[in-house]
Design a binder for these strands. Structure first.
Lengths: 262, 262
DNA sequence: GAGTGGTCTAGACCACCTA
DNA sequence: AGGTGGTCTAGACCACTCC
């Protein structure tokens, strides 16, 4: 594909292709607070409409890679702003982000009637079954976390032991149900490793662990999975950005909603 | 303003007005997973372009109030899906939320040239000083956390030992600087208590602790405080809601980016 | 005044879902 | 086949910022 052209026969939308080109531009040739080409410039360069350019930049804005200032331009967001909000990511994605090579040992996989608290969290009727996986997760070949995942059986028909370690569980659930996974409620707690956990994670008993527990939901509100993961405290931290007031681009302008133009 | 009309002379953009009307519709007359009027229907009702309708629904989607399904329609998201990002709260506010009565023992208070990492996090020039507080925080009279707070001296002129234990440090910084506190970056890590921490918190050495560290920022982008807090692992957990990447709409479609239409 | 992003219009074709 | 949301075009006027 030549420079400054987009593939108009691809299934990939133009705005998404353009966003990827801009991402490359930002990551390879620009630094924090540098200005991006203006929207009109991009319209001419790539021969797309301004709405399409704005769709592309909207995407990068939502991802925190760039920010816009009216009347001034679009700029590269500082590094520390990029991965700051709570994002629902898989272990695999998380490790890649930290620059580590993830892998998985499946310890146990079964179909069962779950414990009561698990059934409650998944909103199951008495007697409904779940798939249960216990997995040791590794980073660069070193034990990193010990996780148990429960998925309602009816959400993952035709699952096999081959699919799970390799592919994404999220994707499996999404294609089976036709609903996207949109968020997960999580609870973090500091605990210490017992003998069994210590042995599997190859750390001394009594070492600190970060216990992560929670339910992942689909867009129709149905619970998709319940997880409990123990991360090694010496190798794992959790970073987030807490905000005082959720900001919506516009919220400051409606302080006087009765103000009129004429 | 009559039913089904928007105020075209207002400073408030049409898409925002429409979003508010749809929000009312959803909250007052619809329930979970009910279908909203179609985009074309809204175009006719409110006499705006389809792009404007989509801008309005985009906003509500970002806020988690509704979700879209291609080919089917736009639907009301279940109550528990209306996610808001985690809010930045002080220890005092946090304990009140949990239904506990907070109190504080000031262990140490001094003005000093801070360690290098603290100075870096606060963006201080060499030689600039900070106020440093070490405090034992209690809930219902029981030790709960052990915290150290660093505040640039120039942000908290005229501070006194009386002000700190009683009131909120956030409020103090806000009134002194005239800038609101808008967000804080935090990092959580599981650790175990050493002898000194154990004694102060009245727990056994080796007990789990949640270490919370981070910088709090003002609306002008300046760092306002740097904190390190150790919470008792047996009494403290951290709950949050993780949202999936905003580009997930499309991400599943680019598994085979080389696939062409013809 | 010139350039930027913010909002808006009135069309169009497409992919997807339901029937 | 008809309705839905997903993408795209080619214009337009506005508010804001900088010179």
């Amino acid at each position: 594909m030549p420079y400054r052209t987009l593939n108009r026969t691809s299934f990939v939308p133009l705005y998404f292709q353009l966003a990827e080109k801009l991402r490359l531009l930002v990551e390879e040739t620009l630094s924090a607070n540098d200005q991006l080409p203006s929207e009109n410039e991009l319209v001419e360069r790539y021969r797309v409409s301004r709405n399409t350019v704005r769709q592309a930049i909207d995407l990068l804005t939502k991802q925190g890679l760039v920010y816009r200032m009216q009347g001034k331009g679009t700029f590269v967001a500082p590094e520390r702003m990029r991965y700051s909000l709570h994002k629902l990511v898989s272990f695999t994605e998380d490790m890649h982000r930290r620059g580590l090579q993830p892998s998985t040992n499946m310890l146990e996989m079964k179909e069962e009637v779950p414990p009561e608290d698990v059934a409650n969290n998944l909103g199951l009727q008495p007697g409904e079954t779940v798939y249960c996986f216990k997995r040791l997760r590794l980073a660069n070949g070193e034990p990193m976390a010990l996780g148990t995942t429960y998925i309602p059986t009816f959400l993952a028909q035709g699952i096999s032991s081959e699919q799970i370690p390799s592919g994404s569980i999220f994707k499996l659930i999404e294609t089976t149900t036709g609903h996207r996974i949109v968020y997960g409620d999580r609870t973090l707690k500091a605990v210490v490793a017992d003998e069994a956990q210590a042995e599997l994670l190859k750390i001394p008993a009594g070492s600190p662990l970060m216990r992560v527990e929670g339910v992942t939901f689909l867009e129709n509100g149905l619970p998709g999975e319940y997880i409990i993961i123990f991360y090694r405290g010496d190798r794992y931290d959790f970073a987030y950005r807490a905000v005082r007031e959720p900001d919506s681009t516009f919220s400051t302008k409606i302080v006087h909603p009765n103000k009129e133009k004429s």
